[in-house]
């Protein structure tokens, strides 16, 4: 995906600081943040920061990857439920892919996610590491 700098900039709050929206009526937190709660139509919200630990709900190990990710393959990617109940998908780093199991405790760390060739935007964001790491 072509990462225009304006598009990347708009994602900084959620990708760099895990900012989510918490709605007053339902108390529900959405990540990425929403302006309207799809369940209640509520627009009264506060920006909260997601917790950085959770449990892995499911995952896969990508062994044949698009060329953009080729040098990282095989890499694990999965969906975790964080301690506040929100869900997030992220790639694993700094762990053996064979160690990744459903139900394992994970922690989120700030990492470089991808870059577009030699002259493109370098995109930072979050990745999972095992919680003990």
């Amino acid at each position: 995906m072509t990462m225009f700098s304006s598009r990347a900039w708009r994602e900084y709050p959620q990708r760099y600081r895990l900012e989510a929206s918490k709605f007053k009526k339902s108390g529900k937190t959405y990540f990425p943040p929403r302006k309207v709660d799809p369940e209640t139509g509520d627009t009264e919200r506060e920006i909260v920061r997601l917790p950085d630990t959770g449990k892995l709900l499911t995952f896969t190990v990508i062994r044949i990857a698009p060329s953009q990710w080729g040098d990282l393959a095989p890499y694990a990617i999965g969906i975790a439920e964080l301690t506040d109940g929100t869900r997030i998908m992220a790639q694993f780093t700094d762990c053996d892919v064979e160690e990744v199991k459903i139900g394992m405790d994970v922690r989120i760390e700030f990492r470089r996610v991808q870059e577009e060739g030699h002259h493109g935007v370098i995109s930072y964001g979050y990745k999972f590491v095992p919680k003990w790491y």
């Binding site: 499911t58 990508i62 890499y75 990617i77 790639q91 459903i102 964001g125």
Partner: peptide, 23 residues
């Protein structure tokens, strides 16, 4: 923005569903 950006592919998404189903 939040799935393909982080390295998800189509086989990867279905792989996650398959692992969840097996579990």
């Amino acid at each position: 923005e939040y799935e393909v950006f982080n390295g998800a592919t189509f086989p990867g998404l279905y792989g996650m569903m398959a692992n969840a189903h097996m579990h």
